[in-house]
Amino acid sequence: MRENFQTKHKGKDIDLYEIESPEGYRLQLANYGCRLVSLWLRDQRDRKVDVLLGYDNIGQYLTDDANLGALVGRVANRIGNASFTLDGKKYQLTKNINGKHHLHGGVEGFASAVWEVEDYTKSSIILTHKSHDGDQGYPGNLIVKAVIRWTEEDVLQTYIYATTDKPTVANLTFHPYFNLMGEGTPSLDEHKFWLDANEILEFGEDSIATGNSLAIGTTPFNFQEITSVNFQEVMKTQWGMDGEGIDHFFVLNNFDESLQEVAKAEAENGLSMEIWTNQPGLQFYTANFLDTEGKDGKHYSKHTAFCLEAQVHPNAPNISHFPSVRLAPGTTYTHHTEYRFRVAD
C-alpha cells in the first residue's frame, strides 16, 4: 500500500511509515496531516484486526473532510464566531462551519499540512510542522513536534509539543476513528465504554460551547460504569444538538495535569483500549456524519466508529473560566496521550 502514498503535495514529499511494537502491533501513518492510517492488533482468537478507519491511498486523504486519523490544530474543536481576543487584540480566524465558526484549525489546518519527518526508527517516529504567523488567522510562528512511539510494554504513546515566538493559543489532539471489531464493521453494537466524567459541556447553537457544565446524572451520557451506547435514548436528549448521536465534551474528574487513565473501550472480540492522558477533557464522537468509502472499498457510515479526543475544552479562547489555551514565548505546550491495548484471556 505504501506506493499509493508516495507523491508530492505543494512541493513536499508524502510517504507512508510503519512502526512496530515488541508484540508485533503495527501502526501505519502518513506525514500528510500526521495521520494515523492503520493499527493492526490481534484479538482474542489471535486474528489480525485493523482497528483504525482510513483510506488506501493519499488521494482520498487529500479530499477527506472527516479528519480521519489526523493531528488537528492549531486549536482543536470549535471556536465560536471564528474569533477570539488575546491580550486585548481580536483575531479573526478562517470559517469552516456554517460559514460562521472555526473547527479543528480552520480551512487549512494541520490536518492538511505535509509534516517533516525528523526521526524514524522501527518503533518510533518524530514529525514536525511550522505554522507561520497569521496562518488561518492565528498569531505567532508556532513550531509543533509530534512524537509517536511504542514502548517495550506495547503501549502506544503520543506526545505533542509546541512553542511560539509571540503569545498565541494552542490546543492540539489526534483524531483517530476506532472500531475494535475491525474497520468496516457496520456498527458499534459490540462495544462498551467507560469515561471518568461526571459532567458534560453545554453546547448551544451550531454546537458551540456556552461555558456552562451539565451534570450527567442518570442521562444516557453516563459512562461511569462500562456500558454500551444507547443511541435511541441519546438521540432524544441531545442538550442542544441535532439528535445525531454523541458528539460531546466530557469534563474529566480529578484533572491535575498528570497522566491518568480517563477512558476505556472494549469489544466482544476480547480487545480493549485504555486511554491515558494529561488533558482535562475528552470529545466523545460516534461518527454521526461519516459517509465515505474506506479501505478495500468498505463503506464507512454513521455510528461505525468512535473517537475519544483528549484536549482542552472547546471554545476555550472565548471562555475565561475554562482551562487556558494561551501559549507564551519561552513556554512549551505539552500534550501526552497513551493508548494501552489488552486482549481478554
Rank of each mutant, 00 (worst) to 15 (best):
M1S: 13
F5I: 09
K10H: 15
K12P: 00
I14Q: 03
E18Q: 12
E20C: 13
G24Q: 12
L29P: 06
R35N: 00
L36C: 10
R42N: 13
D43Y: 00
Q44E: 11
Q44S: 10
V51A: 04
L52E: 05
Q60D: 15
Y61F: 15
D64F: 04
A66G: 09
A66S: 13
A66E: 12
A66Y: 15
L68I: 13
G69R: 10
V75P: 05
N77P: 09
R78S: 02
F84Q: 05
F84S: 04
Y91H: 10
L93A: 12
T94V: 14
I97K: 12
A111V: 00
W115K: 06
Y120F: 15
T121R: 03
S123L: 04
I126F: 07
H132K: 09
D133C: 01
D133M: 03
Y138A: 01
G140F: 01
G140E: 05
N141Q: 14
L142Q: 07
V144T: 07
V144R: 04
D154Y: 07
V155Q: 12
V155A: 05
I160W: 06
Y161L: 03
A162G: 02
T168C: 00
A170H: 06
F174N: 08
L180Q: 02
M181N: 04
E190Y: 06
L201G: 03
E205H: 14
I208D: 06
T210F: 06
G211C: 03
L214K: 13
T218P: 06
F221D: 11
Q232H: 12
V234H: 10
G243F: 07
E244D: 02
E244I: 00
H248M: 08
F249R: 05
F255K: 10
S258G: 12
S258W: 05
S258R: 09
L259C: 15
K264D: 07
A265R: 13
E268R: 11
I275W: 08
I275Y: 04
W276D: 00
T277A: 04
G281F: 07
F284H: 08
A287D: 05
L290V: 15
E293R: 15
D296M: 11
G297E: 05
H299K: 09
S301G: 13
K302R: 11
K302T: 09
H303M: 11
A305W: 14
E309M: 01
N315I: 03
I319G: 09
H321L: 01
P323L: 08
P323R: 12
R326D: 00
Y333D: 06
F341E: 11
R342H: 13
A344L: 10
D345W: 06
